[in-house]
């Protein structure tokens, strides 16, 4: 199995796929910003935003389930916010005994926790949709068009290109280690510290290979005229549909925010 099978892009020709990557990037950013700026307790507004996500998912035909599954990645982090349930002052709902003392669960604490979850889940769905409907190279030129520092975007481009090559190398090294380790129960031999150091040696080898590869790549670039600058073709101009969709969705998000903050 190739690692690139995990690329989150989901090929398609839906209207969402065809929307200009710059517009998609901006709208995703706006969406997440709106979620962040909405006050707590605005369940109605959160609901409308979720509706927006579901609608876009349906339009994109990447699959509701797929988006939800990928969005679950961030759920474990909710642990970090659980403490808000006890730590926020407010009307006490329940008191639970804890380590000899008691903890009071407050109404505002529960509201805060749920609001954080709502914002977080909305945001990650939007990010998943962006990645699922936009090939990464398009995102790259979208970023460039949005004036991110060109060298940084170029580095991201190399990272993306060689991520899969090096991840494959890393996987082969792991398989080679597996093939030679005699512990079938997966415990591995030696002490933990020794295993960690062996893993370190593998990382060292991978580093040397990567470094030498970067030298060859640099030569391949020179051979084709590289002079230290970053050059790219100019991106195509926005189509009328891109403008309309961008303005429309942007406007809806603005209204939601206005409604929520009033």
């Amino acid at each position: 199995m190739h690692i690139h099978a995990l690329d989150s892009y989901c090929p398609g020709t839906s209207p969402v796929h065809r929307l200009d990557p710059r517009v998609k990037l901006l709208l995703t950013g706006l969406f997440i910003l709106t979620a962040a700026l909405l006050p707590e307790r605005e369940w109605g507004a959160f609901g409308v935003m979720e509706g927006l996500v579901l609608l876009t998912t349906l339009l994109s035909r990447v699959g509701l389930l797929r988006v939800q599954r990928r969005s679950a990645v961030a759920l474990p982090f909710a642990l970090a916010a659980v403490t808000a349930v006890f730590a926020t002052p407010g009307r006490v709902l329940w008191t639970v005994p804890f380590l000899g003392g008691t903890l009071s669960i407050t109404e505002s604490g529960v509201v805060r926790f749920l609001s954080i979850l709502a914002r977080s889940y909305l945001s990650i769905q939007a990010a998943v949709l962006l990645a699922a409907t936009t090939p990464f190279p398009d995102l790259l030129w979208g970023m460039r068009a949005l004036r991110l520092p060109r060298p940084l975007v170029a580095i991201v481009g190399f990272l993306y290109r060689y991520l899969f090559v090096l991840a494959d190398e890393a996987r082969r090294m792991l398989q080679a280690r597996e093939a030679r380790s005699a512990a079938p129960d997966g415990r591995g031999g030696g002490t933990v510290a020794w295993r960690a150091r062996v893993t370190g040696s593998m990382a060292g080898i991978l580093f040397l290979r990567s470094y030498e590869r970067s030298e060859r790549i640099y030569m391949a670039m020179l051979a084709r005229g590289y002079d230290g600058t970053v050059r790219t073709l100019s991106p195509p101009s926005l189509r009328p549909t891109d403008w309309i969709v961008g303005a429309l969705v942007g406007g809806v998000l603005g209204l939601i925010l206005l409604w929520g903050r009033m």
Binding site: R161, V165, A223
Partner: peptide, 28 residues
């Protein structure tokens, strides 16, 4: 003079085929 490297993973350093083939002409 065009050099094609032994390992195509060294030669193809751009994310897409188009970017890679366009690289030389662009820098020219």
């Amino acid at each position: 003079i065009g050099l094609v490297f032994q390992d195509p993973d060294d030669q193809l350093f751009s994310p897409t085929v188009f970017d890679d083939v366009a690289y030389g002409p662009l820098y020219a």
